[in-house]
């Protein structure tokens, strides 16, 4: 199952690149190209790691860490 998911993600990214990159090169939108590649790379890495069942850090934990000082206040306010 993991292999199928990885292949699907890679095929999707390849099709997306073939469709989008020439348009951006033609329009000389280099900033767009950079952002597009970074975001697509991040998404691909995340998808491949997820299909390989690797532990990915959870963004909710980061937010929880940021708001951990107000935890006691929220507990007394809402419970």
């Amino acid at each position: 199952m993991g292999i199928v998911a990885i292949l699907a993600v890679l095929a999707f990214s390849a099709v997306l690149c073939i469709a989008e990159v020439p348009k951006m090169l033609k329009g000389k939108l280099y900033r767009e190209l950079w952002t597009f590649s970074v975001l697509l790379g991040l998404g691909m890495v995340l998808a491949v790691l997820k299909s390989l069942d690797v532990e990915i850090p959870n963004p909710s934990d980061w937010i929880a860490w940021v708001y951990s000082p107000v935890k006691g206040v929220m507990k007394s306010l809402l419970k």
């Binding site: 993600v9 900033r31 697509l40 691909m44 995340l46 963004p59």
Partner: peptide
């Protein structure tokens, strides 16, 4: 990021949202 057209980055962002929604 100072891009001219937001539509270029919608699909990669969608891929990220799709993956992260399963582990959030």
């Amino acid at each position: 990021f100072g891009l001219k057209d937001y539509k270029r980055i919608v699909i990669p962002l969608g891929l990220i949202v799709f993956v992260v929604s399963g582990l959030i």
